[in-house]
Each structure stands twice: as structure tokens, then as C-alpha cells.
């Protein structure tokens, strides 16, 4: 039997009614091991105008590079209570904030380790199907050999790498530009 996968449709302007019941702005509780980070950002449209009705979902491994999922067979520790999933909505200024821990490295194609990264889904009115991108980390030696980052033109890779906020330890800035000169790299997933 071969069925056709159901088509996607936009979350529309009123997704808060259904999806904001389960907002998860704190991905890692105090018990989770790892370097604690806060990721701030804004979601901007093609005119650089803030998007006040976007939803961001994140998925990541724990600090050991282990996903809380049955298909991750790696012999690495799980962290009790760490699901690895985040969900935040943008505010009137298009801003969002997420608190988590920096994930560890996970294996990639051909056994090459991937650099630490967070998977991101972006939903909003005007997106008929969600978009997928990744957040990478600054000053990370693994970025140079990351098998996914290497698929991206070098001058666009920076759109996926969070920036340090000077003077604020553990705070990173990562923006989503839907279109235009600094358009974020989005994936065909």
C-alpha cells in the first residue's frame, strides 16, 4: 500500500489558540547537564519588518550528544526530564527567547561527527508549509567540517551561526530573515 502524505497548510494567524497551550521556552531544566545558554532573536519578513505571529520549534540532543528518542542507539547517557523540544511564539516586536543547554555532537553521514546544532521549524501565517533551518554555535571548531553546513554556500553559512552577545555570558543572538539580502538558509527537508 502506498498512500499520499497529507499536504501541509498554514498555521494561520490564530495558531496561539491551539499551540500556545504548550509553549516550552525552557528546554533544559536545572537538572540537565551542560552549558546553559539563552538564544534571543527576531523573525523578520522580506522588508525587514518584525513578524509578530511566528512560532519557532526546536529539537536538539542533550549535552552528551544523545537524543531522547528510541532510534538513537548510541551508548551515551540520557538526562531525566530532558525532552529536547522547545516551542516559542514571537511577540509584537517579532522577538523570541529560548533557554536551553548547548547540545553535544551527534553522528552524521559517513560517520563524520556533526557540529553542535539545534534543529528549527518555523511556522507562521503566510507559510503554507513550515520551514526548517538549524542553529549552530560560534567559535566551534566542528563547524568547519560539519557535513550539513558544508552543503551551504560559504557566504550564507553565517545565517545559521548564532552570534555572541558581548558582555553577556551564555547569551546568543540568532535571527530569522525570511527573505532578502541576509535570508536565512532554509532546507528542503
Amino acid at each position: 500500500m502506498k498512500l499520499t502524505a497529507t499536504g501541509n497548510q498554514t498555521v494561520g494567524p490564530y495558531f496561539h489558540i491551539g499551540l500556545s497551550r504548550m509553549l516550552i521556552p525552557v528546554v533544559a531544566g536545572p537538572d540537565a547537564e551542560g552549558k546553559r545558554i539563552t538564544i534571543h532573536g527576531r523573525v523578520l519578513d522580506a522588508d525587514q519588518k518584525p513578524i509578530p505571529d511566528a512560532l519557532i520549534e526546536t529539537w536538539q540532543a542533550n549535552a552528551f550528544g544523545k537524543y531522547a528518542h528510541p532510534e538513537d542507539m548510541q551508548d551515551k547517557p540520557l538526562q531525566k526530564g530532558f525532552l529536547g523540544f522547545g516551542r516559542v511564539a514571537t511577540d509584537d516586536g517579532g522577538a523570541f527567547s529560548l533557554t536551553t543547554i548547548k547540545p553535544g555532537r551527534v553522528p552524521g553521514p559517513g560517520g563524520i561527527l556533526q557540529a553542535p546544532h539545534v534543529e528549527v521549524s518555523v511556522f507562521m501565517r503566510g507559510l503554507l508549509r513550515h520551514l526548517v533551518t538549524r542553529i549552530y554555535f560560534p567559535d566551534e571548531a566542528g563547524n568547519a567540517e560539519d557535513p550539513v553546513l558544508r552543503l551551504v554556500e560559504p557566504d550564507r553559512r553565517a545565517t545559521m551561526i548564532a552570534k555572541k552577545v558581548p558582555g553577556s555570558e551564555g547569551v546568543l543572538e540568532w535571527n530569522v530573515n525570511m527573505a532578502g539580502e541576509n535570508e536565512t538558509v532554509f532546507f528542503d527537508f
Binding site: 529539537w59 540532543a61 532510534e71 556533526q114 557535513p147
Partner: peptide, 8 residues
Amino acid sequence: VLLPHTLS
């Protein structure tokens, strides 16, 4: 960009 399906 075509995303390979890795463990992530």
C-alpha cells in the same frame, strides 16, 4: 538546500 536525513 537539500537536507540529508541524519540522526537529528
